[in-house]
Write a protein that binds this DNA or RNA. Structure first.
Length: 851
RNA sequence: GGGCAAUUAGCUCAGCUGGUUAGAGCGCUUCGUUUACACCGAAGAUGUCGGGGGUUCGAAUCCCUCAUUGCCCACCA
């Protein structure tokens, strides 16, 4: 015997874990092999296996919405989860942990450090997987992929070799962004610039005075550059000058280079090709000697004499001090503002150094990517990011793909360590191949790792190749949904790699979400202590509440504010839905077996029409990636229409099949957004088989005219009820009596009375009392005093309508309007005019009767 | 220096290709022991849609311009 009963309030913790397990165990998360539509695939951006999930990950809820929606639509649907070893980021995090015990990675050594970081990330990975479950994400766990899985690494290696064979990979000694703390080079995009004030030293160099913020690099100066058009220095170009320096006299050649701004400083610049990117370029142009004076350890080297071994900052002070002492300092500007690069992961100041690295040529690789985007093979949501991505790609320079960190995927290169020069300088391949080529002990393995983004840039195909789904129609994937902040770092690179490796775009649509900020739109940060932990919130308010809070009111590409109060609001909404279900379940007779909903009353027709419209609206909105609007539409149907009106109406005239139908429909279309509460309710409904997660998405139909006519009658009832309530509230009337001349309204007397909390609804030949001003003529029985009291209200009502009518008439009198505006719009204006005229006549009549 | 976005109710934000008298949630005021829900219900107040100009029959929506805020990119001896 069904016990159609639910707890008084929805308690998420009671259901979530069980429901999730049931979904997972039933295989619902796997693509349905029987589904016949096109496959729908999303590869989840793999969270970094080095900590807890945060709100950025919780934003993947939009992926779950798409996935659940497509699954219900009957597509073979795959949401593939994974985790990222996140090279340098994880390394830095684990090093911080080590630092708490006063240790560094150098104490452990490379091998031990790797092993411990592996354990650290494995632990985090499992923790993270639990958290993904907690968010209700319907990912196919059987296809979980880690970036360090053998199959992924194999694909990454294969791609590297293919790129190398195509001549897109080279090894080069060039200036790079060096992080002295990580002891690794980084790509330009991993350097974040911060504005700061530093002293600008004007130092004397023979006949020159020149400005620099880095006097400590002067030992690496190999020229002085001036603008060739600068009259002051023109004659010196090409000459070599003698200058007194801290370590004795030196000679420097003077070169002319258009890069020099005559307005800056003294118009002359010291050129240090080894330690400044611009100077490096100048050096290339003028074939200057590259003299390194700072090592990869961030310390000055033996070329600097007594400064050798000093860290850069210390050396700078010392050199400046000594220059002053020796009379070689002209003056110092203490208020010079400029921006300085810092490593975005560890925050250490970047030291430009010349170090040998592996590079990827991008000039050819980016072309197909640009083409694909321009041709619309990849669409961006929101659209404005199309141009942003294109601009970035078009200006992209060769990419340094090697990292000297210890945590990552080793570049599969072995160098010739034998004296046999007929053998290749290096090979790309396995150790066995190295042995074959160079003999046992005749080779040296590369120790550099790949940039994390080199491997994750291959994620869409690397994952599907690892799971064996690549050939099964899941590639190209459907949507790449990720944070706006990694558009360049990740998305553009996936496009390049995807097109190179598979000749196909990796995804058809890129959906970018913005940043989740605190409730006042401020960035969340530890120092401000305004952060929200999504996992704490799911525990406190339920996962559905958090999901809705991250969906509704948040638009693609834009930042979205989230406060605890917002989550609380959606917790309330879930509870509202729960109670609606609880009420309806209580209405079912024993052994109720649902039948086709047939409208018997205007209210029935009205709610059926509203439900049908909402299904259409939600479906369209999801298809258009307007998830906020989709969620809002269901929210409003449930609360504003179903709960506030229809359920109340059903307490007078009940149509159980319609209650059942509307509840089922709401729960179904809300499921992608709030999967738990909807599934819990579904399970309690009689006559439902299987799980909601795999139930078929409803289809909106073209509503028959008769349904619309009937529905309009309920709108009339609503209007009278609302007007009555307003008057009753303002005049403190209890149980007012409603009079009407309208047959239909009189027919619905019980309904109107209940909804309006009226004493009675009476049909009369002629109205009297307080006129309600609704299209269906109705009055509230009232004495002369009360009517007189409300006279001003009628008058202002009349004035308002008159103004409005005037506007409409002016509009319709305008030929330009009636000619140019679409016929439907004009017709609507005409209808409105007639309506307003009728109302106005009634109000005027009422006022006349008042005398 | 280049670019993008935002500016709408006290707060946080919707408003898709221009077309009802501009919306939601929260907050606020008043009232409320109704056959589910106080995590509730009813009623209500609050807007020169940042300023100025323009296009149009019609502009929150399109164009120009200014202002403020945020973000991205580049450069910075």
């Amino acid at each position: 015997m069904p016990s159609y009963e639910l707890d008084k309030a929805y308690s998420p913790s009671k259901y979530e874990a069980d429901l999730y397990k049931r979904w997972e165990d039933s295989g619902a998360f796997k693509p349905d092999p029987k589904a016949t539509k096109d496959p729908f695939t999303i590869i989840m951006p793999p969270p970094n296996a080095n900590g807890d999930l945060h709100l950025g990950h919780a934003m993947f809820v939009v992926e779950d919405i798409m996935i659940r929606y497509r699954r219900m639509q009957g597509h073979p649907t795959l949401w593939l989860p994974g985790a990222d070893h996140a090279g340098i980021e994880t390394q830095v995090m684990y090093e911080r942990q080590l630092a708490k015990d006063g240790r560094s990675r150098f104490d452990l050594g490379r091998e031990e450090f790797y092993k411990q970081t592996w354990d650290f990330s494995q632990k985090n990975m499992h923790n993270m997987m639990d958290q993904v479950r907690q968010l209700g994400f319907s990912v196919d766990w059987s296809r979980f992929v880690f970036t360090l899985d053998d199959k992924v690494v194999a694909t990454v290696y294969e791609t590297f070799k293919q790129l190398h064979d195509a001549d897109y990979i080279y090894r080069g000694n060039r200036i790079v962004n060096w992080c002295p703390s990580c002891r690794s080079a980084f790509a330009d995009i991993e350097v974040k610039y911060r504005e700061q004030i530093d002293p600008l030293y004007y130092i004397k160099y023979g006949p020159f005075v020149l400005a620099t913020v880095r006097p400590e690099t002067k030992f690496g100066d190999t020229a002085i550059a001036v603008n060739p058009k600068d009259e002051r220095y023109k004659d010196l170009i090409g000459k070599t000058i003698d200058a007194e320096d801290l370590n004795g006299p030196i000679k420097l050649q003077v070169i002319g280079d258009a890069h020099i701004d005559p307005e800056f400083g003294t118009g002359a610049m010291k050129v240090t090709p080894a330690h400044d990117p611009n100077d490096w370029e100048i050096g290339l142009r003028h074939n200057l000697e590259v003299r390194a004076v700072i090592g990869t350890d961030g310390l000055l080297n033996e070329r600097t004499g007594k400064y050798a071994g000093m860290p850069v900052a210390e050396a700078r002070e010392q050199v400046a001090h000594d220059l002053e002492e020796r009379g070689l300092m002209d003056h110092i500007d203490m208020n010079y503002t400029h921006s300085v690069g810092y490593h975005d992961r560890c925050g250490t100041q970047i030291e430009p150094l010349v170090v040998e690295q592996w590079w990827m040529k991008v000039d050819e690789l980016k072309k197909p990517a640009i083409k694909a985007i321009k041709e619309g093979q990849i669409k961006f949501v929101p659209e404005r990011f199309t141009k942003v991505a294109l601009d970035w790609l078009e200006n992209l320079h060769d990419w340094n793909i090697s990292r000297q960190n210890w945590w990552g995927i080793r570049i599969p290169v072995y160098y010739n360590n034998t004296s046999d020069e007929s053998k290749p300088e290096y090979i790309i391949g396995t150790e066995e191949e190295a042995i074959k080529t160079y003999g046992q002990g005749g080779y040296e393995a590369e120790t550099d790792n790949f940039d994390t983004w080199f491997s994750s840039g291959q994620w869409p195909f690397a994952t599907l190749m690892a799971t064996g789904d690549f050939e099964k129609g899941f590639y190209p994937t459907s949507v790449m949904e990720t944070g706006r902040d990694i558009l360049f770092l990740w998305v553009t690179r996936m496009i390049m790699f995807g097109l190179f490796k598979t000749k196909k775009v990796p995804f058809r649509t890129v959906y970018l979400h913005g940043l989740v900020t605190d409730e006042h739109g401020k960035k969340m940060s530890k120092s401000k202590n305004n952060g929200i932990n999504p996992l704490e919130m799911t525990a406190k308010y339920g996962t559905d509440a958090v999901r809705l809070a991250l969906t509704i009111g948040i638009t693609p590409g834009n930042d979205g504010a989230l406060g605890e109060r917002k989550i609380e609001g959606y917790r309330n909404f879930c509870n509202k839905l729960w109670n609606v279900a609880r009420f309806i379940l209580g209405q079912f007779p024993e052994n109720y077996s649902p039948a086709r909903p047939v409208p018997q009353s205007p209210a029935d027709a009205w709610i059926l029409a509203r439900t049908n419209d909402t299904v259409r609206e939600v479906t369209k909105a999801i298809e258009d990636y307007r998830f906020s609007e989709a969620g809002q539409a269901v929210y409003s149907l449930l609360w504003d229409d179903f709960a506030d009106w229809y359920i109340e109406a059903s307490k007078v005239e009940q149509n159980t099949n319609i209650l059942y139908h509307v509840l089922s429909t709401i729960v179904t279309v809300l499921h992608p957004f709030a999967p738990f509460v909807t599934e819990a309710i579904w399970n309690a409904l009689p006559g439902k088989e299987g799980q909601l997660i795999t139930t078929v998405w409803p289809q909106a139909v073209k509503a028959p005219a008769e349904l619309k006519t009937q529905a309009a009658k309920f709108e009339d009832v609503k209007a009278v009820v609302q007007a009555t309530r307003a008057v009753a509230a303002e005049e403190q009337l209890s149980k007012p009596v409603i009079l009407t001349t309208n047959q239909q309204l009189a027919d619905s007397a019980d309904l109107v009375a209940r909804l309006a909390r009226a004493g009675a609804v009476k049909q009369v030949g002629e109205g009297s009392g307080l006129y309600l001003g609704t299209t269906v003529a109705a009055w509230i029985e009232a004495n002369a005093q009360l009517v007189a009291n409300r006279r001003h209200r009628l008058e202002s009502q009349r004035d308002e309508k008159q103004t409005y009518l005037k506007g409409l008439e002016a509009k319709l009198a305008n030929e330009n309007y009636t000619k140019n505006a679409p016929a439907a719009v004009v017709q609507e204006t005409r209808d409105r005019r007639e309506e307003t005229k009728t109302l106005l006549a009634k109000i005027t009549e009422q006022l006349t009767n008042l005398g």
